[in-house]
């Protein structure tokens, strides 16, 4: 995936320790509910902390919490680099 412009930046594209602001969540149904209830709402600040040793999943920081999420799911969250 390219990350040349801000518009195409997704959560999974962030580099280690890079921060981002959630813009939009393209998930549906259960995933969407789960994301929302854990605070993945537009405007929330998110920090990419690290990849798992095998690169997937990733660990991120949001609202003072550490959360792990698979890359396939992180690819649904559009972010803006902060």
């Amino acid at each position: 995936m390219t990350q040349t412009t801000e518009a195409t930046l997704y959560l999974c594209d962030l580099k280690q320790n890079q921060k981002g602001i959630i813009q939009h969540c393209a998930a549906q149904g259960m995933l969407k509910q789960k994301l929302l209830s854990m605070g993945f709402i537009p405007g929330a600040e998110i920090t990419m902390l690290r990849n798992a040793p095998l690169r997937d999943p990733i660990e991120i920081g949001i609202h003072n919490c550490l959360v792990t999420i698979r890359r396939s799911e992180a690819a649904l969250l559009k972010v803006e680099a902060a």
Partner: peptide, 10 residues
């Protein structure tokens, strides 16, 4: 199946 989103608690 459930999405893989888990909190890593302190």
């Amino acid at each position: 199946t459930a999405p893989f989103i888990m909190e890593l608690p302190p």
